[in-house]
């Protein structure tokens, strides 16, 4: 059947067209939510600042909240289960000093994953958030080969009970979205909220382009580092104390 023939029956005669007001959707707007219908803007660059001195090795608040927020179940197969964020313990073999820090997608300004993606599914939003457009991801995993941070997971099995905010299914690649859905609603990412509420407040979220924001002030005045800064991918996630 052609497209038109298949759609033909839809022009059924029975129901008269009712033209009323177009459907109005009222959404509760948080203080800084971007107004409905407005696109993300390059004026912003969302980022994270993580103070590892306030990140105890045993605390997993960020990870737990991420799994809950994004609906990432545990299939009991660590080699193939998705992890958007993980705690990495880093030990200096010379001194023995060990720090623990969360690593997630670093939302690079020049993301390797975006460059290598054949279809353009791997993409960077105007406000710097790096995402996988799972509608055109073919599951080739080249982005996973290219990412120096091991930030992405391939979905190895069918999923059920997905969260509305994070539709996910077998055969595509996923990763941290910086909780784009929450950021758009004027909230901070789930991990950061959990770190501030249940952890020691190691994580700060904000707009790196807004000189008045806490994150921008601290990045401008305190010492911060980025993982694999030598690769010059310009990540939006900065760390302190490593």
């Amino acid at each position: 059947m052609t497209d038109t023939s298949r759609r033909a029956f839809l022009q059924g005669t029975a129901v008269a067209a009712v033209t009323l007001a177009p459907g109005l959707t009222l959404i509760a707007t948080a203080a800084d939510a971007r107004p409905a219908g407005e696109a993300a803007s390059p004026k912003q660059r969302w980022g994270l600042l993580i103070d590892t001195t306030k990140c105890p090795a045993e605390c997993t608040a960020c990870i737990d909240s991420c799994k809950e927020e994004m609906g990432l179940p545990d299939h009991g197969r660590p080699a193939t289960d998705a992890q958007y964020i993980r705690k990495v313990s880093v030990k200096d073999p010379a001194s023995g000093k060990t720090v623990s820090l969360p690593v997630m997608c670093q939302h690079c300004a020049k993301p390797a994953c975006v460059d290598v993606c054949p279809t353009g599914a791997s993409m960077k939003r105007a406000d710097g958030i790096v995402l996988v457009d799972r509608h055109i991801c073919i599951g080739c995993r080249f982005c996973m080969m290219a990412c120096p941070y091991k930030a992405r997971s391939f979905i190895h099995e069918d999923q059920t009970g997905q969260k509305i905010a994070n539709p996910r299914g077998k055969g595509c690649v996923e990763g941290c979205t910086l909780c784009a859905h929450r950021v758009d609603a004027g909230e901070m990412p789930a991990c950061t909220e959990a770190c501030q509420n249940r952890g020691k407040g190691a994580m700060v979220f904000g707009d790196l382009n807004d000189p008045a924001s806490e994150i921008a002030v601290r990045v401008a005045t305190e010492a911060t580092t980025r993982i694999r800064a030598d690769l010059k991918l310009d990540p939006a996630v900065r760390y302190q104390g490593i």
Binding site: V114, D115, C117, T119, G120, I138, C140, R141, F142
Partner: peptide
């Protein structure tokens, strides 16, 4: 591929920065 059913996508969406 994870989604071999999307071969049409691979043939219609090109990211010219990608060596793939």
């Amino acid at each position: 591929l994870g989604r071999p059913d999307r071969l049409d996508v691979a043939m219609t969406h090109f990211n010219f920065k990608s060596i793939f």
